[in-house]
Simulated scan of single mutants.
Amino acid sequence: MMPQRPIRFCPYCGVPVVSRFLFGQERPTCPECGWIYFADPKVAAAAIVEEEGRVLLTRRVNEPYQGFWTLPAGFVDAGEDPARAAERETFEETGLEVQVTDLVGVISGREHERGADIVIIYRAKRVGGTLRPGDDADQVGFFDRDRLPPLAFRATRRALGVE
């Protein structure tokens, strides 16, 4: 797990937190109101969209891995169904409307400081839209699996079976 920035103040009453051994580990705790910090995992959802044996990928405009390619993916918002997040992210990044058809798998392990701890991979089919880059992608396209461009993340490589 990647190190997180330290929690220094209670988000509810603003008092500096102290470290206490609770629930099996040291946790930032508010000595005033009793709030305990539990680090929640960051969850992302990705879509594998294939047409005519080719897989949809997006080229990243942001670091890390700027200029490398990945599946359309992004963070799941609080209260959001992860399958809907995969559909939403695919539309935001590629302009394609997709419908999740099944769960491919779950990949764990944060790859960089701002990354997800858990990536849920879905298979999805195109139901509409027009292919165009958007959000944090500057190019999008379908690629033959034996001629993939440089891939950004271990999770993408694992999802596509190339690692």
Rank of each mutant, 00 (worst) to 15 (best):
P3Q: 12
I7G: 06
R8P: 01
F9C: 12
S19K: 10
R20G: 10
F23W: 15
G24V: 02
Q25K: 15
Q25L: 15
P31Q: 10
C33F: 08
C33G: 12
G34P: 01
G34Y: 09
Y37A: 10
D40V: 13
P41Y: 08
V43M: 03
A44I: 05
G53T: 00
R54H: 06
V55E: 11
L56S: 07
R59Q: 12
Y65H: 15
Y65C: 11
Q66S: 14
G67D: 11
L71S: 06
A73H: 05
G74R: 05
V76G: 03
D77R: 02
G79M: 01
G79E: 01
E80G: 04
P82M: 02
P82N: 00
P82Y: 00
A83R: 06
R84H: 10
A85M: 04
E87Y: 00
R88P: 01
L96R: 00
V100M: 07
D102V: 12
L103H: 13
L103I: 13
L103Y: 12
A116C: 08
D117R: 01
V119Y: 02
V119I: 13
I121E: 00
G128D: 14
G129T: 08
D135I: 01
A137R: 04
D138E: 12
Q139E: 15
V140R: 02
V140G: 03
D146C: 10
L151Y: 02
F153H: 10
F153I: 05
T156L: 06
R157I: 08
R157S: 06
R158E: 12
A159P: 02
L160F: 09
G161D: 09
V162M: 07
